Simulated assay, not measured.
Amino acid sequence: MMSSSPLPEPVTTRMRQRHRTESMKAMDKCHQYVTRLFRFGHMDFEFAVWQMIYLFVSPKKVYRNFQYRKQTKNQFARDDPAFLLLLFVWFVISATGLSLALKLHFLGFVKFLFWVVFIDCVLVGALVATLFWFVTNRYMRSSDTEDVEWGYAFDVHLNAFFPPLLILHVFQLFFYNVFISEDYFIARLFGNTLWMISVTYYCYITFLGYSCLAIVRHTQTILYPLVPLFFVYLVSIIAGINVCRVMMDFYHYRVY
């Protein structure tokens, strides 16, 4: 029985050199990004605000800029941390509002802020980004010369995370104690619909993030989970499950 012959040495060497070069470039980009976190004067906050607005009204325009960055700087991922810093500001604002709605003490506010930033956004986002990074590069990539950057996958998560953050952690606050937390059918319908809208935003913006990459195909599969989620949404309303109140109770007992 003949064993398969290994790759020729020059090919193996080139592959190793390519991976080593890509790793060094990724580390260098990460170092530059972290360094810029402390240089507020070099950040374009006006453009970051523009991105946040258009993630609501026209997400496609946001990803056109990612394509322009690829042409000019040879990377899709953000190199300006202004968006990340503004997102953290919204975390503080939303955590303050939710702490007041849940009547949390200061330590509870700190715990809640920590949970939302590092668990809900960073940890879960890193897992989701890694999953999409692996699946797109392994099964959905149409070119062997380029791959999807992990940093870009995490940027897509941050983009998709922002609208649900404002809908569920800011807009909902104006209605929770006076309306959504009640047992009425209309209150349950309104609160669960906010969650359905938020999930739809997340899936749609994620879909746009990968569909704008020429090297990724079959991106419509990212929208498929919306079908079973819609049925879960209907069942929750019929079964009398108030998703907003369930999540509020979860956060309250988690950080109180």
Rank of each mutant, 00 (worst) to 15 (best):
M1H: 03
M2T: 09
S5M: 08
P10Q: 06
R14T: 05
R16L: 04
Q17L: 03
H19E: 11
R20C: 00
T21S: 12
E22D: 13
K29G: 11
Y33T: 09
H42E: 15
H42M: 08
V49W: 11
W50A: 01
S58L: 04
S58G: 05
P59M: 04
F66R: 01
Q67V: 10
Y68M: 02
R69E: 11
R69C: 05
Q71C: 04
T72I: 00
A77K: 14
A82N: 12
F83G: 12
L84D: 15
L87C: 11
W90C: 12
V92C: 09
S94F: 09
G97P: 14
A101L: 05
L102D: 13
V110G: 05
L113Y: 07
F114V: 12
F114L: 07
D120V: 01
V124T: 08
V124W: 07
A126E: 15
V128Y: 05
T130C: 13
F134A: 04
T136D: 00
N137C: 09
Y139H: 07
R141W: 00
S143Q: 15
D144P: 01
D147S: 12
D147T: 15
E149A: 02
G151P: 07
F154I: 07
H157K: 02
N159V: 01
P163I: 01
L166T: 06
L168C: 09
L173F: 08
F174L: 13
F179N: 07
F179T: 09
Y184W: 14
I186V: 12
R188Y: 12
G191I: 15
N192L: 10
N192C: 09
N192Q: 13
T193D: 09
I197T: 06
Y204C: 00
L208M: 08
G209W: 09
Y210M: 04
V216P: 12
Q220I: 10
A239R: 03
N242Q: 01
Y256A: 03
